[in-house]
């Protein structure tokens, strides 16, 4: 499955991988806001920001082509809407939709593929997001592949028997639900017997070092400055 690729990428080593998740979250959020609010001289600004992200990918030692392709996941949806805008006589907005959504997706991808997900969620928690929600998300990610595989087995078995009718598919879903429900109970019991006390002990919390602060400052300012300079030159 594709996310396995993301897990592999996020466990590599590079300067970007070593930074504190909070610094990367801040940088990504600033970048997203810079992209979302860009208006004049959009083409040169997005070209500049694109090169900035590419530089980030290179520094993180991620495969450039692979990452650029992976961020293209957003394109089918966006292209549909761009076509609609074009039909409505507003081709410029269509172009801006494509540029902005692709750049945003690439920025999030860069953040996620340089930070393992538990660390990233822990970073969000330390910024102030509700812990309960993030723990549920972490569990979701942990069991996503387990339960998806069960579902795949079910639909493959059904295909072997000659396809699923509507009622049969509903029955399969009901069985999957009941099974995951009791699985969740077992998981909780197993966790309790290993001493679960209401919170995860992830990889030990990293300290926010000077290097992280430096990185956060640089990575937050760079896209902002880039945009301001390009807008000034283009005007």
């Amino acid at each position: 499955m594709q996310p396995a690729l993301l897990d592999r990428w996020s466990r590599q080593a590079s300067i970007l991988h070593r930074r504190d998740p909070r610094a990367k979250i801040a940088a990504a959020l600033v970048f997203l806001v810079v992209v979302a609010t860009a208006q004049p001289a959009l083409l040169p600004v997005s070209a500049g920001l694109f090169l900035f992200l590419c530089a980030g990918l290179v520094v993180a030692r991620l495969p450039l082509g692979g990452a650029l392709l992976r961020a293209g996941i957003v394109l089918p949806f966006t292209l549909t809407f761009a076509a609609i805008c074009w039909m409505a006589g507003d081709p410029w907005r269509g172009v801006s939709l494509i540029l902005k959504s692709y750049l945003s997706a690439l920025a999030v991808l860069l953040m996620v593929s340089t930070t393992p997900l538990p660390g990233l969620l822990r970073g969000f928690e330390r910024i102030g997001a509700p812990r309960f929600l993030l723990m549920v998300s972490q569990f979701l990610y942990r069991y996503l592949f387990v339960i998806t595989e069960q579902a795949q087995h079910m639909s493959k078995a059904a295909a072997c028997r000659g396809g699923m009718r509507f009622r049969a598919a509903a029955g399969a879903l009901a069985v999957l639900f009941a099974r995951s429900y009791s699985q969740a109970e077992d998981i909780h019991r197993a966790m309790l017997s290993r001493g679960f006390e209401g919170r995860f002990h992830g990889p030990e919390d990293t300290r926010f070092r000077a290097a992280d602060a430096l990185f956060a400052a640089a990575a937050c300012c760079a896209p902002l400055l880039l945009r301001l300079v390009i807008e000034r030159v283009a005007a």
């Binding site: 069991y143 996503l144 579902a151 699923m164 598919a169 995951s180 429900y181």
Partner: peptide
């Protein structure tokens, strides 16, 4: 969490 995974997985079963 497991229920969330279930909703994800439910997309594998086509009606």
């Amino acid at each position: 969490g497991v229920m969330g995974a279930f909703v994800f997985a439910a997309q594998m079963i086509n009606f």
